[in-house]
């Protein structure tokens, strides 16, 4: 039986237009809405697979403001068992702080008799993209960590994890307890069912605090770069444009024969 903890972050929907807050310090998510990143959705899907195959459970954890409970409940709606909200001001936190807050929450759970054989995170957060929380957490816990995982299986005390490397699919076999960071692509994210949504509304989400003093992220300001000016040459419309397009292909010397 493997209990899995998945860390998710509430982020402004990164597929929407990026609008900054007036002070230029944050992405304003009020227009695009909030979500979790695709990597974390994949992590939840993998965690649910592990829980199903080993008879374990999945806890979704988020460090942030009270609203992050929405992302926790979204995880429960697609198969997680329960949730933990570590309440903290997300604007003050850097990746080392988030790792410390997660480690502390794990200690609290451990004291309550709940140990997680596997902790899954996204490879990188969709907004800040620090690429660090999972690795820093592993060192705080003294556990091995594999990054960029796309599929995984647990058999007893060993996890087999796969991710894409420069020469092919890299396979790791790691003794549990362990940490892994997930990249989307190896598993389809789950969509909530009606039953799942009902369950998510009622599921228990424990609220914890974090007592550490944050070192922060070092952010001074955000800017949205202006797209470079561009003049597109419209070759034409519909099938009538085919000869013109082929002429451009020949000009670019990409047509042989």
């Amino acid at each position: 039986m493997t209990d899995v903890l998945v860390c998710v972050k509430r982020v402004p929907d990164p597929t929407g237009e990026v609008v900054l807050t007036p002070d230029g310090m944050r992405v304003d998510g009020r227009y695009a809405g909030y979500t979790t990143s695709a990597h974390e959705e994949a992590a939840i899907a993998l965690a649910v697979q592990v829980a199903e195959s080993t008879g374990g459970s999945v806890t979704v954890l988020s460090v942030g403001a009270a609203e992050s409970v929405e992302q926790i409940r979204a995880g429960i709606a697609v198969g997680a068992t329960d949730g933990i909200l570590v309440e903290a001001d997300p604007d003050l936190l850097g990746p080392a702080d988030v790792a410390a807050a997660v480690a502390e929450a794990l200690r609290v759970r451990e004291e309550a008799g709940r140990t997680y054989g596997l902790v899954l995170l996204g490879n990188d957060a969709a907004d800040t993209g620090d690429f660090q929380v999972g690795v820093r957490l592993a060192y705080l816990l003294g556990r091995p960590v594999v990054a960029g995982v796309q599929t995984l299986e647990v058999d007893g005390d060993v996890a087999t994890l796969r991710g894409e490397g420069p020469e092919g699919t890299e396979v790791y076999e790691v003794a549990l307890p362990a940490v892994a960071t997930v990249l989307e692509g190896g598993v389809s994210p789950k969509y909530p069912s009606v039953v799942g949504r009902m369950k998510a509304k009622k599921a228990e989400v424990e609220t914890l605090g974090w007592t550490g003093s944050p070192v922060g992220a070092g952010r001074e300001a955000l800017t949205v770069p202006e797209p470079p000016p561009n003049e597109v040459t419209v070759i034409g419309e519909g099938t009538a444009a085919a000869p013109g397009l082929v002429a451009v292909l020949r000009e670019l010397k990409v047509v042989h024969g």
Binding site: P12, P14, V18, L20, V27, A126, D127, T128, G129, A217, G218, R219, E220, A221, L222, T223, V224, P225
Partner: peptide, 13 residues
Amino acid sequence: QVVGGAALERATV
């Protein structure tokens, strides 16, 4: 680069 390249962050390291 942050937000997948949609924004730039000025940061002190």
